[in-house]
Write a protein that binds this DNA or RNA. Structure first.
Lengths: 100, 100
DNA sequence: TTAATCTACAACCAAATGGTTGTACGACTT
DNA sequence: AAGTCGTACAACCATTTGGTTGTAGATTAA
């Protein structure tokens, strides 16, 4: 989980994730979209891949990157649980206030 | 968003968030729960507060910390949008395959 | 075959992170 | 009034992060 959220904690990486969720792209295609070196984008992709948010698939000399909805869903589900915990607290408070 | 996800990218902080979503707690109450210095926990709370995931409210000499569901929801919504983007891709693929 | 393209990876650097200890100060307790 | 408790904050340290440049290997194109 640390790695997932850490990977999401960068604007460039979130943008790469967004793009690759919409459709696969090669590393160089991604690199062309940002004002930084190819190696920097390569590293960002590696972080996303390390978190499982993205998969890399060789295709000729290119590596096609595509977003992995499962991991996104996993992070989302955790946040959902936090909200549930909060809702449970509210329910307890409601019950307390309703003991008339 | 960077700050929100960065704040979530640490197990201790996510645990603090979980606790404070379930019910408010003072900084020292939180500190007692972890095997690290008071100052370290204080810093974690500060990071969560800086991200808006938690609010700090003076109460006597204590500072009560409570989780903020709005920010959790904000992060969750962003992840939801990624999934939508992905679903849209699948729909496009389906449409492509269905042109018979 | 030679040249161009795409990727991998190492080495380096400044800044941020996650932890520590120590000091100080306001707010309760006795 | 003195002591204790809860918090704030600074200074320091090791490690990680986000970026760079440079070199080298595969794969495709001329």
């Amino acid at each position: 989980m640390d790695r997932i959220f850490r990977a999401l904690a960068d604007t460039t990486r979130r943008d790469i994730l967004r793009r690759t969720m919409a459709g696969e792209a090669s590393v160089s295609q991604l690199a062309a979209a940002y004002d930084m070196s190819f190696a920097a984008v390569q590293k960002h992709v590696a972080v996303l891949e390390g978190a499982g948010l993205v998969t890399k698939q060789p295709q000729g000399r290119e590596r096609m990157i595509r977003g992995n909805p499962e991991m996104v869903q996993k992070a989302q589900a955790l946040l959902g649980r936090y909200e549930e915990v909060w809702r449970a607290r509210i329910d307890r408070l409601d019950a307390l206030l309703a003991d008339d």
